[in-house]
Computed example of a mutant assay.
Amino acid sequence: MAGVFTVEQLRPIKDGMTISRDAKMGQTTAVTFFSLGKDTSISQERYDVTSIYIGAKGTADFLIGDQAKKEPVSDGDCLIIPGGTLCGVETATGTVYTEIIIKKETNMNSIVKSGEVMKLKDLISYEEGSIANLDVVSNSTMKFVLMAFDEGTGLTPHRAPGNAIIFALEGKATIGYEGKDYTLSAGENFRFDKNGLHSVTAQGKFKMALLLVLE
C-alpha cells in the first residue's frame, strides 16, 4: 500500500466495537491503527517497552498509572508511555488513533515529556527559508521525526531505507512518489514502501511527522 489515506478511512468507527488493524510496517516496531466506538474502552495493561499514541479522529481519555490519571488525546495529539506503565483507553464519543510499540531501547528528545499529551505541530517551529527537523524518538530500527517546511522549500527525490508513514500536521504539500504527484493536507497520511522514490514540496508552510521503520 502506498498513497494518501486517513486512519479513519482504514479503520472507521463502528458503534459498540473496538477494532485494531496491523499497519504491517515491520516486526521490531509494531504499528497498529485503532478505532473505538462510542462509550467503549480498552482495560489498563502494561507494555514492557515504550509506546506512542497519535490521535487521528475524535477524543479518547488515556488512563495512565495506578491512579488511572486521565489524559485526553484528540486529532494531532501525541502521548508517549514509558515501559512498565499501566495504560488504558476510554471514549464517550468514539475515537481513532495510531499505536506504535517500540520493542527496543529508545533515545528520546529532552523536550518530550512521557505521560503528557503534546500537540505535535507545536513542538517544532518554521525557520526562514529552511527545513527544520526534530527527532522525537529513535533507535537502530525506527525513527519518529517532525519536519517543518518553510514556504518554497522541499526534499528532492530520494529513497528511504525502510517503510514509512507521513502524518500531515499543518498546511499542504505535494508528495511525489514513483513518478506520480499526490496532494497531502493536514489530517491526512501518506504511506511509502522501503526504497520507494519520493519527494516533498511544501505548498506554503507545511509541517509533518514521519515514522520510518528500519527493518
Rank of each mutant, 00 (worst) to 15 (best):
I42G: 00
P72W: 09
Y182I: 10
Y47V: 04
V96D: 06
E188V: 14
I124M: 04
G26M: 04
T153N: 03
D39M: 14
I101S: 04
V137Q: 04
G83Y: 04
V145L: 10
G16M: 04
M25S: 09
T201G: 02
K38G: 04
D39N: 11
V117I: 11
A60V: 11
T85A: 03
L10Q: 06
N189M: 14
E8Q: 07
K205T: 13
I52A: 07
R191A: 09
V137N: 02
D22I: 08
S51E: 07
G65S: 04
G26A: 02
D150S: 09
I102E: 14
A92W: 06
F144C: 00
T183C: 02
G37K: 05
T106G: 09
T85E: 12
N163T: 08
T93K: 14
V213L: 02
I13H: 03
V7W: 01
S41R: 05
I101H: 02
Y97Q: 00
G55Y: 02
K180F: 05
F190E: 01
I54M: 08
V49Q: 06
K69A: 09
I111H: 03
K194M: 15
K113N: 15
P72S: 15
L120Q: 07
M17H: 10
L197F: 11
V145R: 15
P161N: 11
T6C: 12
Y177C: 10
K121G: 01
K172V: 09
K119F: 13
K104H: 12
T93Y: 08
F62C: 08
Y97F: 15
A23S: 02
G84P: 04
D181R: 01
G179V: 11
G83T: 03
L63H: 01
F34N: 05
K207R: 01
F167I: 12
L146A: 01
S114Q: 14
S41K: 11
F144N: 00
K119T: 11
G83N: 01
G55S: 03
T174C: 12
